[in-house]
Amino acid sequence: MDYFEKHIRDNKALFDEHKADRSKMWAKIESELSNTNPKVVPLWKSPLFRVAASIVLVLLLSILIGITVYGGQQSGSQNNVVSQELLDIDMHYSNLVQHQVQLVKNHPDLSQEDKNEFLSFMDELDEEYGVLKLEMEKNLGNERVLEAIIGNYKKRIELIENLLRQINDSKMINDDYGYTL
């Protein structure tokens, strides 16, 4: 350091020639500091919070897994209930139809031609039933399909009942006629 530099540094206080407007500047500083939001300590930095967060996470995962598995089982059992219900309806109508078809087949007053015509109707309804049953397996919750299956059975029973009524009616006319004579 030469003489010039030393001279300046020794007298550097003389370079402080300005006076700050202290009160005005402090007012702004204080206002800025007051407006500052309180310092936020991130919760995740606290070890206690980390433990609590881990527990919550584990609980949430357990609940999620529980819902998935139990919900799946429930849904399965619900499907089983629907399936069982469908099976019962199917069994009931199937037995009813089989019984009546057998009655038609064994009926002595019906010609073979009438029997064949009737059975061909029943075959068509059987095919329709097959399609509906496949549809039902795909979508058990579809009430319209279920209704269509029941409708299919009812139509078959109605057909059989009509046929049997016709046979009985013709028999009664003949009997009346005979009785009149």
Partner: peptide, 14 residues
């Protein structure tokens, strides 16, 4: 804070 400010404000302003 104000006392520190009072101590240093002129020097910093210069």
């Amino acid at each position: 804070q104000f006392q520190l400010y009072e101590q240093y404000v002129d020097a910093m302003y210069n």
